[in-house]
């Protein structure tokens, strides 16, 4: 993907670990993507509600105010960003979590620490899928 095409896509990385946010932001930024990073569920929701993203990469082990689950972010993202693709990542892969994430609309599930090159491969694949879907016809949860 050319940097010019990448620049058309904004990506949101959601993770409570700053080194993860920094590494992913810097890496994808070097490939031309515009990347925003959120450390909290509510911060991610505020960004999703006000900005259009093509892709979200989220650690859904986050918890929010009043014990809300990070998985709720998937439905929120689908509702606010038409056509958004979602990569769920977590440090502790569990079959139940992956099934639930996919049921709620995750497009890909990756385990941390994931080599950045592999993450980029997933990102390119999903962004290509976004480009193939006409605007306004994104899937909804």
């Amino acid at each position: 993907m050319s940097p010019l095409r990448a620049a058309e896509h904004r990506i949101l990385i959601v993770d409570d670990e700053q080194p993860v946010r920094d590494a992913v932001s810097e890496y994808l930024g070097a490939y031309g993507f515009t990347v925003d990073a959120a450390e909290e569920l509510e911060e991610a929701e505020a960004l999703l509600a006000t900005t259009h993203y093509s892709l979200m990469i989220a650690d859904v082990r986050l918890t929010g105010l009043h014990g809300r689950e990070g998985l709720e972010l998937l439905r929120f993202a689908r509702r606010h960003c038409a056509g958004i693709r979602v990569i769920v990542m977590t440090a502790h892969a569990a079959g139940d979590l992956e099934r639930e994430a996919r049921r709620r609309g995750a497009d890909a599930f990756v385990e941390k620490p994931l080599p950045l090159a592999d993450l980029l491969f997933e990102v390119h694949g999903l962004i290509d899928a976004v480009d193939r879907v006409p605007a306004g016809e994104g899937q909804d949860a």
Binding site: E42, E43, E45, L47, A49, T50, L65
Partner: peptide, 17 residues
């Protein structure tokens, strides 16, 4: 930071109650 934008800042504040 993205909190520089008031719509993001106050959306966050409201979501944090």
């Amino acid at each position: 930071t993205h909190m520089e934008y008031p719509e993001v800042l106050f959306e966050y504040v409201r979501r944090k109650s």
